[in-house]
């Protein structure tokens, strides 16, 4: 079972690393945010599931396993709200879309 836990941690570290690489390479602020969601979802969920399994099976501590699960739930619940606020705030503040952007329905509808 310990190898399952190792595998979960390695997979989530891979996704966190991919998210960071994407954050550095993407063309504009919005695409960087897309990539940072990688870190916030599978990057942390894998570690949290591994922590739940480890504390339940190897530490025999049910309370700690439940706490780890609750931390995971709250991360997932609160993450997207910051996402909406950042994206909308950046757009209204005037952060430009990159030149690769092919369509912008939001800007078109705001001008109306």
């Amino acid at each position: 079972m310990i190898y399952v836990i190792y595998a979960l941690i390695i997979v989530s570290l891979f996704f966190a690393a991919a998210g960071v690489v994407g954050m550095l390479r993407m063309p504009d602020a919005y695409c960087r945010m897309q990539s940072s969601t990688n870190v916030g979802t599978l990057g942390t969920l894998g570690v949290m599931i591994a922590a739940v399994l480890y504390s339940a099976i190897y530490l025999h501590d049910g309370g700690m396993a439940v706490k780890c699960a609750v931390i995971g739930i709250f991360l997932i619940l609160t993450n997207p709200i910051a996402g909406h606020a950042l994206a909308k705030g950046a757009y209204h503040h005037g952060v430009r879309l990159s030149k690769k952007t092919i369509m912008d329905k939001y800007g078109e509808d705001m001008e109306k």
């Binding site: 991919a18 998210g19 919005y30 990539s35």
Partner: peptide, 16 residues
Amino acid sequence: VAKRALSPKLPVKPGI
């Protein structure tokens, strides 16, 4: 998305 971030050509086509 991980594949897109790691591939050398960066195949993105963003839009709203």
